[in-house]
Design a binder for these strands. Structure first.
Lengths: 236, 236
DNA sequence: TAAATAATTATTGTTGACAATATCCTGTTT
DNA sequence: AAACAGGATATTGTCAACAATAATTATTTA
């Protein structure tokens, strides 16, 4: 195999490049959840030595995308329903706070930008029926904007570099209810209005409801999945 | 210098041992905030090679105790007032949720244990007047118990492995208001009562107030520090 | 045949050397 | 004297070999 299979972005260290590549490979499902990874295999795949690879693995472990057992090996995280519920719960707390802060701190120009983002999402929903991927990344766009608007660097990093990555894994493995995008858009609108009215209390409540609602959808999808498989079992 | 200065705990990897040692050195202030650390120096100090050391550094970077600039170097984090406010804000969101979950999930026996913990703290306050250290670790004990009682592994890890470490740094560098421990104990009692009454709503609100109050104390300490130094400046 | 145990293999942990990069110092130029 | 350029030095990034540990297989024994 040829060496240096990774895209060489100038200024980035090998460890960082592999970190990014591996992260995307995990999130996209290219590397299956729960599968065991060996350092040798990855080092060969990416054409680097094990040193920088191990550093990348440690960082991935830090943001919970890999689970490592000393001396034994490391596996890609397996997102169980329990874990997903935990993630959504933490998300509710963190993004609720983020919406509150946004309502306290955003100025008119920033709120205007947020409104424009929602308009763009609306036209996207009209045009790209069924193209879940873009709608979902759009959704994350909105949440990312609020997180940034909180003006709390720590909060934003926690959300963007840890939580949202896990969330993207959830999304890659569960399909979406067809009526959800429009409902989500309306909820986003309500949140923006609360922010525009400088109502931190309400902004937080609405954001928390919004995320709770999203979790209920995902949970139900899980349930119907289970029902289907038990049904199948009964007939086989 | 003799080799292997670190305490050799069986089963732990060198990287993990150095991770723990370095973490404590940073939190206790043994390594000054903002000071630059070089890999060679640390490798010699702990008597290991740079490989495992770098892994430990990456992990410390992951929990925000070190700040690293590629190719340039890595420094111990400097906790500014802004950062501390950010930490307390995130903490408010996370621990508020954790108290809510605790109120939903804890059983009678667990609540009893919590009450006993508070009694122990009370007698500690009576006995160890002025011994801030134990009182503060006691405070963290309480919060850690609630976090564990949330029964949300993700939330608990976020709190204990990231937030509480940063919090301990804050505490090492700011002295405490003398009347705070008793006030804190009472607030803890209120929270436990809300949990005992299975009132998640109230438990969350009280916890958020409690943490907000703690932040206000710290903030005021900062302010009086600043006042003192400006005063000094005027006279010099 | 099944369980226990020893040998083998695969994988991770650790090291020291080398390469690449940034920082610091020195000398030159304007 | 200040600013810039270039080289020396220190520091980080990368590699490949070696050591230690865990998983696997083969072997022996009850």
């Amino acid at each position: 195999m040829k060496k240096n299979n990774i895209t060489p972005i100038t200024g980035q260290t090998l460890s960082e490049q592999v970190f990014d590549e591996l992260k995307e490979a995990i999130i996209s499902g290219e590397i299956t959840q729960g599968s065991k990874i060996t350092e040798d295999m990855l080092a060969k795949k990416y054409g680097i030595s094990r040193g920088p690879l191990r550093e990348a693995i440690r960082k991935l472990e830090g943001i919970r995308l890999l689970v490592r057992i000393p001396h034994a090996g490391t596996r890609v995280v397996t997102l169980t329903q329990t874990m997903m519920e935990e993630i959504y719960t933490v998300r509710e707390a963190l993004e609720g706070m983020s919406a509150r802060l946004a309502a306290e701190r955003m100025n008119d120009a920033e709120i205007d930008n947020l409104r424009q983002l929602l308009e763009k999402h609306e036209s996207n929903i009209d045009q790209s029926e069924g193209k879940e991927y873009f709608q979902r990344e759009g959704d994350l766009d909105f949440h990312y904007c609020i997180a940034r608007a909180s003006n709390n660097e720590f909060l934003m990093q926690l959300l963007s570099s840890e939580l949202y990555q896990l969330l993207r894994i959830c999304r890659y493995q569960s399909s979406q209810a067809p009526e959800r995008p429009l409902k989500a858009l309306n909820e986003h609108r309500q949140i923006v209005e609360a922010i525009a009215n400088r109502d931190p209390e309400l902004a937080e409540i609405l954001m928390r409801r919004h995320i709770n609602g999203a979790w209920n959808i995902v949970k139900n999808l899980f349930k119907s999945e289970n029902d289907k498989s038990t049904l199948k079992k009964e007939y086989s």
